[in-house]
Design a binder for these strands. Structure first.
Lengths: 154, 154
DNA sequence: GGATATTGCTCAGTATGCTGACTATCAGTA
DNA sequence: TACTGATAGTCAGCATACTGAGCAATATCC
């Protein structure tokens, strides 16, 4: 068997593990209780008011069955609202609340700090290169997961 | 807010998501039902017969509370055994079974294939560079997660 | 030797993520 | 319009991961 350090899958798991831990720690230090997934969902709702859950899922590459619970928790925290759509009675329209907007604003420095910390072992140039290579690998593998990224075609 | 494509945390999640999907698909194609985590645990048990759960967790950077369930499932599938240690009655010694050894041997091509597929968008040189950068970032962030990698000091 | 701290493991609870199934609704078409 | 297929969302079930608590056993220190 190859060394774990030469298995991209193992390295992916470790890096993700650290990224989540850093995010939660920074956000907790700032006095908030929001997971990376909840943050991404909330930021995307703010940027695309009134979008439905499937579109949201496509924009951040979540599985549609995962979204349900994430939104549940955002709603329960009073950060987002879920309304029946008038155009399509199957769909729900998502909106950010004032409280959600305030939270996003206050939490941004912690989120940015977390992104820096998870790259702290790399030079700025290396960090850019890591992100470029991840983007390239992800683009090639996008369709291989159940929840591929879906750009909105308007 | 920054674009998701410039957030290392988001890229980490996406890459990990694809890596797991590819691993499961390749292993299923080969006729097996083993998760990445179960595979890593089993391979590590084989390489370190008789090790206890905490040591195993340290070698592959799992949380100790996660290990319990993983071993449960390996034992239930008949791939590993959990025995009380004679030296320390709190600890359990882990051993791979013949069935586990057979499974590992047969599954190896699928695992290697998965590692190639998750890097298929990159050149060989880029793949190496991605792994180098991930290793470097992980080394710097190792202590930031609850389950840091612990090399065995013999 | 005995109090104290530490360690190995487990468990309860919570949050992703997935598979697969189901309901309600919508869209296209014969 | 009735049929068919696709779509939006939810749910049950399973497998990571984590926090925090607890139990039993071991190590340490006085």
């Amino acid at each position: 068997m190859k060394d774990n350090n030469h298995m991209p899958g193992h390295l992916a798991r470790r890096f993700q593990q650290i990224a989540v831990a850093v995010f939660l720690a920074e956000v907790a230090d700032a006095g908030f209780d929001l997971t990376p997934v909840q943050y991404a969902a909330l930021a995307t709702i703010k940027a695309n008011p009134g979008l439905d859950q499937v579109t949201l899922a496509g924009l951040i590459a979540y599985d549609r069955t995962t979204i349900t619970g994430v939104i549940d928790r955002l709603v329960q925290k009073g950060l987002a609202e879920r309304r029946p759509s008038s155009r399509d009675r199957r769909a729900r329209e998502l909106e950010i609340t004032d409280e959600g907007r305030r939270t996003l604003r206050k939490i941004t420095p912690a989120v940015e700090s977390a992104q820096r910390i998870m790259l702290r072992g790399l030079t700025a140039k290396e960090g850019e290169e890591l992100m470029r290579l991840l983007r390239k690998a992800i683009a090639a593998g996008n369709e291989l997961s159940r929840a591929p990224l879906r750009d909105v075609e308007v």
